[in-house]
Design a protein around this nucleic acid. Structure first.
Lengths: 335, 335
DNA sequence: TTGTACGCGTTATCAT
DNA sequence: ATGATAACGCGTACAA
């Protein structure tokens, strides 16, 4: 026993009557150790409750067995959206059976980008997953160029080097949603789009615009910022400008919930007067009245895949492609 | 430069023309270093982009500068509730200015408790925050007895040793909510309680029962599991058993949203026919129709305080008391 | 004030 | 198959 209470390799070796090296081999599953020796060592490990010292190991292997999940967003919007928790859940699920631990790097207050970059460059983690929504400054570009395995949760805006990323097909998802509104007979279809400094905002708007154009219908757009407040403002503007609209495609469930409320308060029935389609299929979608018809993104799966790719990159594989996953229309009561 | 690309103390020393030890002193802010020397060293550090190797440092200091946030819940309910993200945000906020990193320990699949305990005992982190909702098995008891600074996010059920914990006054919060229903003239007040293996479930029910008893009114209770589905089932049962109820106190916003929907579908108007009060003040509360009146818990603050206490314990302070924070009634449209 | 020298617990190389 | 032994990068008595 050393001072800190944890037994060391040395002590296990002494108890098992072998050398440090042999114990190390057993711990790391080396094939060339006599079964008898293995048994003796394992017995000693059990008896002492030995746990390898990660710091010592990291020092020599130059691997930390930990990966970072980075949220380089100074504002707390990320947290109010259930999206983030689902992502985390997915990442964690594929990391669980590996030795890798999840280190959370958040930028809660004013952006101290240099600190973040220093940390990532300092060899404290083996790789990083970037959950970023905005193309803020050029932090994404700097992250992309780090000499460290990195994957992005969405095609990072304004980055001109090839990166690995995982995302849903936002354009196609939006198309599905708008087409559904068309298919149930709506013609005066407006959209509440997300901010244009996020790929999700841009692409979902594009999908809406494409379908409307193909149908020969005029586009009606208001912008929100993916928050309930933003959704509310946008919905009010829309009703003001186009009181006769009969369909509404909203770029996120969080904003859609607010829109539903605004519609209801304006005396409109959903879906009878105005049919509403959201985007995400978050927990929120089933808490509204009526339940929200929405475009589901498989967020947990994205997170899971993100982790898989990162692990592969850490293992040395090249990977600089954008993986795109399909969305799925979930029809409930609002459209 | 060594193989990994990061410069070492040695290289900084060479460039600055001093010894390793002196550089180390500068890095760690030792007071007795000549200003000139400090300047020279800092210049060298900057020039080389030196970052201390955390593994090497941890090896000798026996501190890891990282704390764990542990969610020993095998099911994913934690993630569907915005509560968790807010907690994380609070913890992260007070950790940000410190050197400590946040390590996330989740138990996504079947509980591998021993693995978790081994990890925590292995000196990989300096301390841990336990976010636990259930009194599952005796994992909490085992955690509480670990030779490691630990704080709990709520008074842990079934633990008979003194522990440090932070929570809101759930009894008082529930009382406030129910009293509000009384104050607006409701007399047939039911509750949707949480599960009785969580302190939040028990205490909020207690608060409800106390107030009802004091008012000489009969209690009407249905149980949910803090999910929307559970809330829906409970609401249906309640309406079935007590079709004439005019007030409803729901132990969580997530369940309350479902209850609102059930009430609406049953043809009842909220708050005209039935007034509803939730608990949490999560993002959900403003997404419903009508907006939810609810008992706010300062979740970010709890997380923040949790981190503060943990840091203090790591620094050597004793701390085994339960800190209780106040809730606040947020009156919106549902009651 | 600064430098020397040792030890932290592990892996990896090289003998045996 | 196993055992010495040398790194890994850093902090810190102890010396100077």
């Amino acid at each position: 026993m050393n001072g800190s209470g944890s037994p060391t390799l040395e002590e296990v070796a002494a108890l098992a009557g072998v050398s440090r090296a042999t114990v190390s081999r057993v711990v790391n599953g080396s094939p060339k150790v006599l079964p008898d020796t293995v048994a003796a060592v394992e017995q000693a490990i059990l008896q002492l409750g030995y746990v390898p010292n990660r710091a010592a190991r990291a020092l020599v292997t130059r691997r930390t067995d930990s990966v970072a999940i980075v949220v380089p967003e100074p504002d707390s919007r990320v947290f109010s959206d259930p999206f983030f928790a689902r992502m985390l859940s997915g990442v964690s699920r594929t990391l669980a059976p590996t030795p890798s631990q999840l280190v959370l790097l958040l930028e809660p207050a004013e952006a101290d980008d240099q600190r973040l970059l220093r940390y990532l460059r300092g060899g404290h983690v083996d790789g990083a997953i970037i959950i970023s929504h905005h193309g803020r400054d050029n932090i994404l570009q700097e992250l992309a160029q780090l000499p460290l395995p990195i994957v992005f949760s969405a095609r990072p805006l304004g980055v001109d080097v090839p990166v690995a990323s995982v995302d849903v097909d936002n354009v196609a998802g939006a198309r599905t949603g708008v087409q559904h509104l068309l298919s149930i007979g709506r013609r005066k279809i407006a959209t509440i789009a997300g901010p244009l400094d996020m790929t999700a905002g841009i692409d979902r708007l594009t999908g809406y615009q494409e379908v409307m154009k193909e149908a020969g219908l005029p586009a009606m757009v208001a912008y929100g910022d993916f928050t309930p407040d933003g959704g509310e403002q946008a919905a009010l503007r829309l009703l003001d400008d186009h009181p006769d609209l009969d369909g509404l495609f909203v770029a996120s469930d969080l904003m859609a919930t607010a829109a539903l409320r605004v519609l209801s308060q304006s005396g409109r029935r959903v879906p009878a007067d105005v049919a509403v389609v959201g985007f995400d299929d978050s927990v929120l979608a089933t808490t509204t009245t009526p339940k929200l018809t929405t475009v589901r993104q498989p967020v947990e799966q994205l997170g899971s895949r993100l982790a898989e790719i990162l692990l592969a990159k850490i293992a040395g594989e090249e990977h600089t492609t954008a993986e795109i996953y399909d969305t799925e229309l979930v029809i409930r009561d609002s459209a």
